[in-house]
C-alpha cells in the first residue's frame, strides 16, 4: 500500500511533533494537577479532602449530578424518539433549539436564569412572596446545570436513531407490541451504548460546570459551593494545595470519563469487526 506521507522521515517527524505537543498541552497539565495536590504529601492531601467545606462541596456536586442526569436522560430519549420517529412541522426548529446551550457562553446561561428567578426577575417577586429560594441556592444550580447539559444525550442519540431507521419498531407494532415494550425490547438494545455515552458526557459536564453555576450560586461556603467553585475559592485564597486537592477529584472523574468512553468505543469497534 502506497499512501501519502508514508516515507519514514515524514512519519517520524509528524509522530514526534504530535507526541511532543500532546505531552506539553494535555499531559503536562494533567500531571500538574496531581503533583500540586500531593505537593505537601499524602497526609495534607487527606486532611484537605476531609475539610468540612470540601465535603459539603462534594455532597452538593453529587446532588446536582444525581438530579441533572436522570432529568436530561428522560428528556433526551423523548426528544430523540420524537425527532427521529415522526415527521411534523417544526421538527428542524426543535433540533436547532436544543443546540443553543452549546453556543451560549455559560455566563450568559447563568444570567438568563438570574433574570428569570432572581429577586428582581419575572418570577422572583412571586417566589419571594412564597418564600421559595431558587437563586443562590441548590435549585438554581440544578436548573442551570440542566440547561447547560441538556443537548448531550439527545445529540448522541439522534444521529444514531436516524441512521437505524424505524423498520424494526414498525415490525414490532405489526406484532402488536405496546409503546413501552417496543422501546424497551427493540429500541433500547440498539441505542444502549450511545445512551450510556451520553449519560457519561452529561455527568462529566454536570459535575464540572463552572461559569453558569458561579453566576447563580452566590458562593456561600459550605452551602452553595460545588466542587469547581470550591477549587476557585481555595485558589483565590492562595490555598494552592487545597485547590488542587479538589481539582484532583475532578481530574480523576475526567480520567474515568475518558476511560469509559474509550472502552465503549473499543467494544463498538470490536462488534463491528465481528459482524
Amino acid at each position: 500500500m502506497v499512501r501519502i506521507g508514508d516515507a519514514p522521515g515524514v512519519r517520524r517527524l509528524l509522530i514526534g511533533t504530535a507526541l511532543a505537543l500532546s505531552a506539553l498541552f494535555l499531559l503536562l497539565p494533567l500531571v500538574a494537577i496531581f503533583a500540586q495536590a500531593l505537593m505537601s504529601g499524602l497526609d495534607v492531601y487527606w486532611q484537605n479532602l476531609r475539610d468540612e467545606y470540601t465535603l459539603a462541596a462534594i455532597g452538593l456536586t453529587l446532588l446536582v449530578a444525581l438530579l441533572t442526569v436522570p432529568i436530561n436522560l428522560i428528556f433526551g430519549v423523548f426528544l430523540a424518539w420524537l425527532v427521529t420517529r415522526f415527521d411534523f412541522p417544526g421538527r428542524r426548529l426543535l433540533q436547532t433549539l436544543i443546540d443553543i446551550p452549546f453556543a451560549v457562553s455559560p455566563v450568559v446561561a447563568g444570567l438568563v436564569y438570574l433574570l428569570l428567578y432572581g429577586r428582581n426577575g419575572w418570577l422572583g417577586g412571586w417566589l419571594d412572596a412564597h418564600d421559595i429560594q431558587i437563586m443562590f441556592a441548590w435549585p438554581g444550580i440544578v436548573l442551570v446545570t440542566i440547561f447547560v447539559t441538556c443537548p448531550f444525550i439527545a445529540r448522541e442519540l439522534i444521529p444514531l436513531m436516524q441512521a437505524q431507521g424505524s423498520r424494526e419498531e414498525e415490525a414490532a407494532v405489526t406484532l402488536g407490541a405496546s409503546g413501552w415494550t417496543i422501546f424497551r425490547r427493540v429500541t433500547l438494545p440498539k441505542i444502549r451504548h450511545a445512551l450510556l455515552y451520553g449519560v457519561i458526557l452529561t455527568n462529566a459536564r454536570a459535575v464540572g460546570e463552572f461559569g453558569a453555576v458561579s453566576v447563580v450560586a452566590g458562593a456561600i461556603r459550605g452551602e452553595t459551593n460545588t466542587l469547581p467553585l470550591q477549587v476557585e475559592q481555595l485558589y483565590q485564597d492562595y490555598n494552592t494545595v487545597g485547590a488542587f486537592t479538589s481539582a484532583s477529584l475532578l481530574a480523576l472523574l475526567a480520567l474515568l470519563t475518558l476511560a469509559a468512553k474509550a472502552a465503549l468505543e473499543w467494544r463498538a469497534a470490536r462488534r463491528e469487526t465481528a459482524t
Partner: peptide, 12 residues
C-alpha cells in the same frame, strides 16, 4: 487524551 479538555472541568 484528545478528549481531556471536554472531560476536565474548565475551572480545573
Amino acid at each position: 487524551l484528545m478528549d481531556l479538555p471536554f472531560a476536565l472541568p474548565t475551572a480545573v
